[in-house]
């Protein structure tokens, strides 16, 4: 059986008065977790609304679980579990009532799993939403999305504002989803730490554009910070993927998103001795990507003045 992509966006555009999503393409395969990372206001929520069929694109194609959005949103949404940081449950109603409401709609609601989640998330079903803490509200919303075991989970900033314990509880449950090979998760965050460990694919978005989308291992593999020692008269050569460099006396550092033997060889040919090649965290990579896409990569060269 050919497996259709869980989410597929091709050249999607959507403009507002003061903001535009330009040429968004992304693909999430079944069985994968995609971390969707961007600064606040980068277009994460708008993209997610497009995926949910709540906002119509000006142009481009959107398919979710094989259904064209927004036309076939009803069919698609049977298979989607959605939760968002700015989604509230009904204040006056209890969590129990919400669970009953979902159960009345979804035949695939798993009562036992819902009970387990109540325990694991440390929630009290008889409590009204208005008396709950922020963390409890967020976890309640996630519980409603998770307990039906939907084929696709679309989560907009699910871990924002959660304390470390609650965040771990939530991330653990997201991993649990992947026991089943057909299920996928798209989750947005401005916090790379949440995304780094559990994501298979990472998509960076900034100012309404996708600046990079790759599997996580390639990201971590390609990016390196290189520390090197130079001799007098050293001139930094053109290096592939270099986003930032600093020279301070005879010591230098540079960041590259395309590390490999070419970088090593060119540096050595220019007379530099490589002292260390450091891995970078996803957060550092993210900042470097954003900076270089904005064309504001910082470079300082104090060598000239000191000589």
């Amino acid at each position: 059986m050919m497996s259709t992509a869980a989410i597929e966006l091709n050249n999607v555009n959507k403009s507002y008065r003061y903001f535009a999503l330009s040429d968004i393409s992304l693909q999430l395969e079944p069985g994968h977790i995609m971390g969707f990372i961007g600064p606040n206001g980068a277009g994460k929520s708008t993209t997610i609304r497009l995926i949910m069929g709540l906002v119509h694109a000006d142009s481009g194609d959107i398919r979710v679980l094989g259904h064209a959005m927004p036309v076939e949103q009803v069919a698609a949404k049977w298979g989607i579990g959605f939760a968002s940081e700015d989604m509230n449950l009904y204040k006056a109603a209890t969590l129990e009532w919400h669970m009953g409401f979902m159960q009345s709609i979804y035949a695939d609601w798993d009562k036992d799993y819902a009970r387990q989640l109540v325990d694991r998330f440390d929630l009290r079903p008889e409590q009204r939403m208005k008396g709950m803490s922020h963390g409890q509200k967020v976890k309640s919303g996630l519980l409603l999305a998770l307990a039906r075991r939907p084929r696709l989970l679309v989560l907009d900033e699910p871990t924002t504002g959660l304390d470390p314990v609650a965040r771990t509880e939530v991330l653990n449950e997201l991993m649990e989803v992947l026991v089943d090979e057909d299920r996928s998760v798209l989750f947005s965050s401005h916090n790379t730490n949440d995304v780094e460990q559990i994501s298979d694919k990472i998509t960076f978005i900034d100012r309404g554009r996708i600046i990079e989308a790759q599997d996580k291992e390639s990201f971590l593999d390609r990016w390196r910070r290189v520390r090197f020692e130079t001799s007098a008269g050293f001139v930094l050569p053109e290096l592939p993927g270099m986003t930032e460099h600093r020279l301070d006396g005879s010591l230098g550092t540079l960041t590259t998103g395309n590390f490999g033997t070419e970088v090593r060889e060119k540096l050595q040919a220019a007379g530099a001795t490589i002292l260390a090649v450091d891995n970078m965290t996803l957060e550092e990579i993210f900042v470097a990507e954003v900076m270089s896409s904005r064309g504001t990569a910082s470079s300082s060269d104090s060598t000239g003045e000191s000589r």
């Binding site: 994968h32 977790i33 991993m175 992947l178 460990q197 298979d200 996580k216 291992e217």
Partner: peptide, 17 residues
């Protein structure tokens, strides 16, 4: 791969690698 990924809370792609 999937079992180990879920057990260690690390993405499938990392374990695969």
């Amino acid at each position: 791969i999937r079992e180990l990924a879920v057990a260690t809370r690390v993405s499938v792609i990392t374990v695969k690698r």
